[in-house]
Simulated scan of single mutants.
Amino acid sequence: MDKVRTPKNIFVQGAISPEKIASSIANHSTKTEIGGHSIFLGQVRADQKEKGEVVAIEYTAYEEMALQKAFEIREAVFAKYPLTCMHIYHSLGEVKVGELCLFVFTSSKHRKAAIEACSELVERIKAELPVWGKEILDSEEHVWKKNR
């Protein structure tokens, strides 16, 4: 009987801590069939805007829809690549400049699948997930962020 996969909560309140990333990596040391990992870390930049410099981003989401969409993306990427593991974490709430807001981690027997899957996941998350970022500027203005 096949195991039924259900949507996992990918959201983290605030910044993603380096400890969470380290712990996730360490948890895979017992999975000896893995030969390669690929990791993407998205960090908030101090972009200069017309009305000031970005000091933080406030992330919001239509959570139920976002979790379903993340599940669909995960399933499609699992079907396309021979992965052992896949983890996605995205921040909600305020994340300051220099802090991490996205953590995508893929593992497989061989590096190529892990690297390609990780890259595809990041692109699809940015393009398809109903998550929005409002840039908070040092001038106290707020500007909706455009994903690139």
Rank of each mutant, 00 (worst) to 15 (best):
G14T: 13
V54N: 00
I21P: 02
A66T: 11
F103Y: 10
Q48L: 12
S24G: 14
S23V: 07
A26W: 02
W144N: 08
V4I: 13
E99Y: 05
K3Q: 12
G52V: 09
F78R: 07
V97E: 03
I39K: 03
K109I: 07
R111T: 10
H28E: 11
G52C: 09
L83R: 02
E99I: 06
M86D: 04
C101R: 01
K109F: 05
F11I: 09
K20I: 13
R111E: 11
M86G: 05
M86Y: 02
L83W: 04
I39T: 04
P82C: 03
Q48R: 11
E50F: 15
Q48I: 14
I21G: 03
I125P: 00
G36W: 03
R5G: 07
Y81R: 03
H90A: 01
V122Q: 06
E140M: 13
E64T: 15
E64P: 11
K134N: 11
L100W: 07
H90P: 04
E75L: 09
E99F: 05
G52N: 07
T84K: 06
M86R: 02
N147C: 12
S119N: 12
E63C: 13
C118Y: 00
G35T: 07
P18Y: 07
D138F: 10
Y81L: 02
S38Q: 03
F11H: 04
G93F: 08
E140F: 14
L137Q: 02
E63F: 09
R111Q: 13
K145Q: 15
M65H: 12
F78W: 07
E128Q: 14
C118A: 05
Q48W: 09
V12F: 07
K69A: 05
I73W: 01
I21R: 06
I88R: 00
I16Q: 01
T30Y: 10
I57F: 04
T6L: 14
E63G: 08
E120S: 02
E94T: 14
P130C: 12
Y59P: 09
A70D: 10
A15Q: 09
T106S: 11
K49G: 03
L83V: 07
K126W: 02
E140P: 01
E19I: 10
K3V: 15
